[in-house]
Design a protein around this nucleic acid. Structure first.
Length: 588
DNA sequence: GCCGTTTTCGGCCCGACTGTTTTCAGTCG
């Protein structure tokens, strides 16, 4: 069962409690929703955490929830969940995926019209709306009937509560809108917020905040955005648009003198904000997007023009957005002990570069020459780089031919080294780990290199145990230095294979092997939560782009964001080291 | 159901917006 499926199940339990008696079960509902949220945003599989007895590391998963999840994995069902949900018609649940449908509305419709079939309930509601039956219900009217019809139609076109965009796609949408907003003279400042500002690997809605003295003008201008599908809502302080592809853009506005609290509020995460507000309450403060009310003087609103001042008023250091996920950051900010997170400007080189040098690789070759990639590295002010094409394919070459190809490549790299004073060049390769754990080329060929990246590119379907043995055997090779895109996942495309991370991390730490944070936006691999565990285990990391063209070398920032989300500092990242230290590491 | 430098009991973030309503319920972030 995936995290998304588990989160959905917990939300169904929460919805069932809401339908049964919202007041009575108020806090159970919150607890189930919090747990669902935390599980959904965890990039570690809950199934693995359960197997490792580490479920308690998820905030919001307490003793009861742990037992329920254990039941789920061992028996395939949870007696307690079944009991809570037994009186609720199954047809309620599919409706909850549709925006604007909550538990109460879904239950009212399903029971009133006696709908039983889970697979047709959405079509059934649509028919009833088209026939004008829903408007006759108490509490519904013509407008809500039309809204239901619209929501169902849009749901059919892909608008739902769960689908998420990869980060660059969301950035592009936000960028266009920000460009548009900046043309309004009433817009003083404009920023992308929410998960976009926290640089989460996927983004649900695009959130934007504007500082303005003329909120109505800005809101009017916003909803006039020419590339919208329609206006979802528009009030005095916020508005929402639907754009093509079924995505929402939410805008909030505040005057400049209160912009700090709006930035804080709208950046989230929701969990961070809830925790921050609970923390503040204990200190006698009540927080909102408008500012702070002190218990000692509850009618006066303190406003803050910057986030720094807002956090400071609570006795906290400013917390970088990437780590606002309620994972201990508030406590660290209170003790003035937040980590100095790695920054893009700390990066001194890139070790995952595929040039077009003709070594007849096993997987995709790069599009550009070594020379152009080197020039780009100079432009980026790098001190060093490592070329790391895929190894020559095994099926088309004898070991001798592989050796000859790599010898030619070594000569080329030697030439290049003479052409530059500013950038040191490492001769690497990205070598496949074969299913039996051997590397794809022999020791004689590997001896031509300064070291090699190793990775899995085939036979993904192995068990966790077998895959772990395979990777450990690959890492054991003295030339193997960096385990690249270590989970093999592709975001929104495939989950990747499973590994015993504790074993991998322990091995890397003692044997001086490094793990890559791959910056390719669909990989972002290691994922942030595993970066955090790697950092806590003392494992060293590289942040690399996996460039197959010169333009990809600019993607480094994505990997840096992932590392930041994983609490990595400069000390954790090997390609932030100065050249001599790094060269020494390669020779270890 | 979760959680802890007020607490292992007794609290639990704070607000916007809409539709159907004459004061609120539901959904959402």
């Amino acid at each position: 069962m995936t995290n998304a499926q588990i989160a959905k199940l917990l939300r169904h339990v929460a919805a069932s409690y809401t339908i049964k008696n919202e007041a009575k079960f108020r806090f159970q509902i919150i607890a189930y929703q919090k747990a669902a949220e935390a599980i959904e945003s965890s990039s570690t599989e809950i199934k693995d955490l359960a197997a490792e007895e580490r479920l308690q590391t998820i905030p919001g998963v307490g003793p009861s929830m742990q037992q329920h999840l254990k039941d789920l994995f061992s028996k395939g069902s949870v007696p307690h969940f079944d009991k809570v949900m037994e009186d609720i018609p199954q047809a309620v649940f599919p409706l909850l995926d549709i925006p604007s449908f909550g538990p109460k509305k879904a239950y009212k419709l399903v029971t009133h019209f006696k709908l039983k079939d889970q697979s047709s309930v959405i079509a059934d509601i649509k028919n009833l709306a088209e026939e004008g039956e829903i408007a006759k219900l108490e509490g519904f009217g013509e407008k809500s009937q039309a809204d239901i019809l619209q929501a169902i139609n849009e749901y059919g076109l892909g608008v739902n509560k769960t689908s998420r965009m990869v980060l660059p796609f969301a950035s592009e949408i936000a960028g266009k809108l920000i460009e548009y907003l900046k043309k309004s003279p009433s817009v003083l400042q404009v920023y992308p917020l929410g998960s976009l500002r926290r640089k989460k690997e996927t983004i649900g809605d695009v959130d934007i905040a504007v500082a303005t003295k003329k909120p109505q003008e800005v809101l009017d201008y916003f909803v006039a955005y020419p590339y919208k599908e329609r206006i979802i809502e528009k009030g005095n302080a916020s508005a929402s648009l639907l754009i093509s592809g079924g995505k929402h853009i939410d805008l909030m506005v505040q005057p400049p003198e209160a912009f700090g609290s709006l930035l804080q509020h709208f950046t989230g995460s929701k969990d961070h904000n809830i925790h921050l507000r609970e923390y503040a309450l204990k200190k006698g403060f009540s927080l909102s997007e408008y500012g702070i009310h002190k218990k000692s003087n509850p009618h006066k609103l303190e406003q803050y023009e910057t986030e720094e001042k807002f956090y400071k008023a609570l006795g906290l250091d400013w917390i970088p957005p990437e780590i606002r996920e309620n994972a201990g950051e508030i406590e660290l900010a209170e003790k003035h002990n937040l980590p100095q997170l790695i920054a893009l400007s700390d990066m001194r080189g890139d070790f995952h570069l595929h040039s077009n040098f003709p070594i007849e690789p096993s997987h995709d070759a790069g599009a550009d020459t070594m020379e152009t990639m080197l020039k780009k590295a100079e432009e980026l002010n790098y001190n060093y780089l490592g070329f790391s094409e895929h190894n020559p394919s095994r099926s088309n070459h004898t070991p001798k031919q592989v050796y000859e190809l790599l010898t030619k490549r070594s000569k080329k790299i030697d030439q290049l080294r003479k052409s530059t004073n500013s950038v040191h060049i490492f001769s690497l390769l990205e070598t496949d780990i074969l299913p039996n754990g051997n590397l794809a080329i022999d020791d004689e060929s590997l001896s031509l290199l300064d070291g090699t990246l190793i990775s899995i590119h085939s036979v993904f379907g192995m068990s966790k145990l077998e895959m772990t043995k395979r990777v450990l055997k690959g890492l054991r090779h003295p030339k193997a230095k960096i385990l690249t895109h270590p989970t093999g996942r592709l975001i929104n495309q495939r989950p990747g294979y499973e590994l015993e991370w504790e074993e991998i991390f322990a091995f890397c730490k003692t044997e001086n092997k490094a793990i890559e944070v791959n910056s390719w936006p669909v990989r972002l691999d290691l994922p942030d939560s595993l970066v955090r565990r790697a950092v806590e285990s003392g494992v060293k990391l590289f942040i690399n782009t996996d460039s197959h063209a010169v333009s990809h070398m600019d993607l480094m920032r994505y990997g840096v964001w992932v590392a930041r989300r994983g609490f990595a500092t400069k000390d954790d990242i090997l390609n932030a080291l100065e050249y001599n230290k790094l060269a020494a590491w390669f020779k270890k």
